[in-house]
Nucleic acid binder design. Structure first.
Lengths: 208, 208, 208, 208
DNA sequence: CATGAATGAGATTTCATTCAT
DNA sequence: AATGAATGAAATCTCATTCAT
């Protein structure tokens, strides 16, 4: 947090904000999502970005660093979106807050489906960087925060046997994964978000 | 050359074949789980199995076939376990059936954690064989069957907005994944299974 | 970025590409001839060409493609040489035409002894590409054309029992092979060509 | 030539005369001809012979020795056939002797087409044993002997520029090869043999 | 002797990374 | 900075040969 490191970080940020770097990240997002985190070749990413392979290495130290930067930049966006949504909904009743949270996730799913494909692959894959794992954790932590707030507000049970945060995370993931398994993705509509929240809070059991 | 010795020799040969093949599959399970589906090298698998590389190819046509065989054999075990559990619980009330189902999954999780690591990786990874994806689908289909039975028995809502089967699948997955994210795996106790079922049917919301 | 430099650079690049490709083909010609079409290793070809193995694959898709390209390029040369010679001799009496044809073959034998070694090996070997076989056929077809012209001009018998084209081909081949069997190659002199033609037209029998 | 070595040779011969060894040689002949001298695998030969791979090594030291033995045994047959034919024709006029010689070769071609395919491949291929090359030379030497006799009898010109023996060898080879190039093998009839001899002695030129 | 599973050296091919231009 | 040809370590797969049964 001293000036040196901060200005170093600053320079990195500037670099990444540059048009070429962005093009590379976008190309990486597309190619990694299409071909898989392990199979995608640097050549293909370069070609998609419209630059030479060598250029990739002017912006990112190596393949791993490119993936890390990609994950970093996209995660920030997701986390910001969710945090903003949560902040704006702070005064609403908990169920609404949860719906807003889920909607934010849904919308991000829709915008960054390729990125999420990467992230889910990264979640389980064995990678040299911890970055992707960290990103997954970032979403997981928001789930924990939301659930914690729910508990605090008395809207969520304080169960010690089931980790509701993990369940929420699993349900979000399931919504996204469903498309891949069934070939029939869920639309990010408020109705769907509300229905998911309803399930999360009241369960799948018939009320009888 | 008499029948006894000849068939005995035959059986012995087969037994040895089977033993080597099993050793290779087990080695594969371990190494793939440790190093990842893509990074694991055939050399390592051979070394772990205590055989030479060439031997792998005496039993499996190629790397892909080895993965396919591995997934096949383990999936069969999981599916059989679940189907047997479900059959034995047919007469119980639905909630109990669900608990039995979840317990079967939990137990398999415990026994075959390495394999599941592979399977989850396979779920999202881009692979050359469809086999692993099929195995994921097999578990998903059991979730669908259970949920369908619940609907039929009037124990599960017939919601069209939320796919409860996908949610059940997501929750099971979340239980397994939790260990990897938090480093604190859930014990496959009946209590935990019951708690998960309770969440699935009644939700996380406080009853008030 | 002006047109001159850009196109100049382009041309330079192409020239270099061409030079490397040629070097690889030449190295291939030498190594295949020395070690045999099947035993020659890509490593050796690369070493002889003064490049790394990987470079071979920047120019030729695989081993087979390298052989095919090699055969293609050399065959074109042989065929062009022969066709040009035949065309230039069109007005001469048939025996002269035949001598010109044989001389063209002799000269090519001398210049491309390594390549011919490859081609003869390819003629009888079982190969994955048909390319080499096609090249053999190309020479065979020239023999057919020459013999057909001889028949047309009344200089060659129209025998139905003996395929004179095959005989001519066999004799040319024998001249080349002789060196390998006896270690005493025939010089590509006009005298030797004339003598071969004399044999082909008049036979080995003493005139008495 | 002492008793030891002679009895050693004797034992070898006996071994090769054994049913198993013969079966292996026959299998080798077929498989090598079908798949090529380099591509044919020991496993395939064993399978075709109806024995286990290990058995091959009880009869032949290694792959190379198997090829050598194969060539040896078949060459002996060819050479004996030719020598016998030549001996029986010793009193006939030279042209007849030549026809007998060619017929013997033709007949052997017909009976042992697979073996010849191997031999021709061996002629040009780069092999570890000299055996096949020696076999080619054996046929070549018979050509030389016949031609020499022709010269002696005044039936063949004593040309120093053209090696008639090589030409005869080349023509025989051409007859055999023709089938492979044109897919239309020459029948081993006396007429065809006579026509070939006619060509060899009188040439392809029209007599005018 | 026969067997055939095991062996492991060796060959091909890929692709992240470098560096001269 | 951009380029893209060259690099060569590494991974997969083959198959002649061995040897315990």
């Amino acid at each position: 947090m001293n000036e040196d490191s901060s200005s170093g970080k600053q320079r990195l940020r500037e670099k990444i904000r540059g048009a070429t770097a962005s093009a590379i990240l976008e190309a990486g997002e597309a190619v990694f999502a299409e071909q898989g985190l392990n199979s995608a070749r640097m050549d293909d990413i370069a070609a998609r970005a419209g630059v030479a392979v060598g250029t990739l290495y002017n912006y990112f130290a190596d393949r791993t660093a490119l993936i890390a930067a990609l994950v970093d930049s996209r995660r920030d966006e997701l986390i910001h979106r969710i945090d903003k949504a949560l902040a704006s909904a702070e005064e609403l009743p908990f169920q609404k807050q949860l719906e807003v949270f889920v909607m934010a996730a849904f919308q991000h799913f829709k915008t960054h489906r390729p990125f999420l494909t990467i992230l889910m692959e990264a979640e389980s894959a064995h990678l040299t960087t911890a970055k992707p794992r960290d990103s997954v954790r970032a979403l997981f932590e928001r789930c924990e925060a939301v659930v914690a707030r729910g508990v605090q507000l008395g809207a969520v049970k304080a169960d010690t046997l089931v980790d509701y945060a993990a369940m929420l995370h699993g349900c979000l993931r399931a919504v996204f994964t469903r498309g891949r398994i069934c070939g029939d993705p869920v639309d990010p509509t408020p109705e769907n978000a509300a229905a998911l929240v309803e399930f999360f809070l009241r369960g799948a059991g018939s009320s009888g």
